[in-house]
Design a binder for these strands. Sequence first.
DNA 1: ATTGATTTGTTCGTATGTATT
DNA 2: TAATACATACGAACAAATCAA
Lengths: 85, 85
Amino acid sequence: MTVDHDADVPVYQQIAHIIKARIDAGQIAPRRRIPSESTMVQEFGVARVTARRAVAYMRQQGWVYTVPQRGTFVSEPEDEEPAGS
Amino acid sequence: MTVDHDADVPVYQQIAHIIKARIDAGQIAPRRRIPSESTMVQEFGVARVTARRAVAYMRQQGWVYTVPQRGTFVSEPEDEEPAGS
DNA sequence: ATTGATTTGTTCGTATGTATT
DNA sequence: TAATACATACGAACAAATCAA
């Protein structure tokens, strides 16, 4: 997954949704660490500020929580919407 | 040798070139250790991140190699360009 | 075997300046 | 003007490995 600088959606949101997709796909379980800022810098070829904004955005969405000097982790499932049918 | 924060060249590159000059001057021989990160912090009055960037830059240039938990050392001379005259 | 100092590795937090749209 | 994004730099904390006493 890469990032498109010429898209309507800001790069930091693109990154946030890419990570979110991995979470939803079960590739990163609750309480597990998401990629560090510098990892995102390398993986997506963006500046660190942008990676930070992506994390801040994910935090804002309630998807993750950050522990200073430790990392950012996937949030506990809040209260699952019951699977349909 | 000190560092100029108002120069065009980034501080980390300035430090890298200062160390390189010492290597070229024979003050630090191949296989010998260059100053540690915390030494550079003290000597140049910069943050450790900046010292680390200087080392990373030198590594990138092929001037040095780093052994984790041991230090950073001057690279072996590749293939000397024959001394002129 | 233990302790303490040293050294690199890694992480998030913060600030400034610049450029582009 | 405001939002986005990049580069640089300092700060703080902790981990882990090495080495010497």
